[in-house]
Design a protein around this nucleic acid. Sequence first.
DNA 1: ACCTCATATCAAAAATTATTGATATGAGGT
DNA 2: ACCTCATATCAATAATTTTTGATATGAGGT
Lengths: 104, 104
Amino acid sequence: MISTYDNYTKVFKALCDEQRLRILELLRDGEKCACVLLEQLDIGQSGLSYHMKKLVDSGVVESRQDGKWTHYKISEKGSAYAGELLKKLTTPNSVIEENNCCKR
Amino acid sequence: MISTYDNYTKVFKALCDEQRLRILELLRDGEKCACVLLEQLDIGQSGLSYHMKKLVDSGVVESRQDGKWTHYKISEKGSAYAGELLKKLTTPNSVIEENNCCKR
DNA sequence: ACCTCATATCAAAAATTATTGATATGAGGT
DNA sequence: ACCTCATATCAATAATTTTTGATATGAGGT
C-alpha cells in the first residue's frame, strides 16, 4: 500500500538510528569523504554505504562524486524540509474539535 | 551500550511509523480519547496502546487520565523540543573543517 | 589491458520493531 | 463483593531494519 505517510516516515527513519546520528554529527564539521567517515566510525564499509544511502534518500544529506570518492554533507534544503515537516505534523489544526467523549 | 544518541533517536523513532503519523494527524484536531482513536484507525486495541506508549515516551504526545479513559493530545513542549533537536542535529558547527581529503 | 582503490550491491544472519490474541489491572457502577 | 468497561501488559509471531562478509562496479593509474 502506498500512502502519503510513507514519504513522511522516510525522513524520520533516516534520523532514528544511532549510527546515522553519529554520521550527522561528523558532517556538522563540514563535508567529508566516505573514507574519512569510515575511519571515524566503528563500522564496516558496506555498513557505512547502507547508512549513507538512507541519509541521502531522505534528503537530509547530499552526496557529491569526485572520481572514485564520494563526499557527503548535510543538505541545508533537506534539513529545512525535515524541520517544516516536523512542524506541520505536530501543529494543531486551526479549528480544534472539542473532546466531548468519555467524560465522567 | 548507553549513549546520548539513544535519547535522540527516541524522538524520531516515534515519528518514523505510519500508524503513529496517522495518530498524530488525528490528534491535530485536538485532544482525543483512546476509544475515539481506536474507531478512527484500522488497528487493534493493544496495538493502539503500544503506539501511544511510544508517542508519549518520546514526549511528542501527552496523556491525561480521566477515570477509566485515557485522553491524548500533542504536546506543545515536546514538539518544540523535537524541532530544536532536529535543528541542532542538522546545523553545521560554527567552525567548519576543510575537506582536504581525497582530491584529484 | 590490467591492476588497484573507493564505494555500491547482494545475500544471509542477527537484531529490532510491530502486530495479534490472550490475559491482567484498575476504575466506576450495581 | 461483583460485574463491566477501558486500557495496559504479556507472549508469540510476523515484518522490517541493521549488520556482516563476499562480490560487483567503475574510476584512475601503469
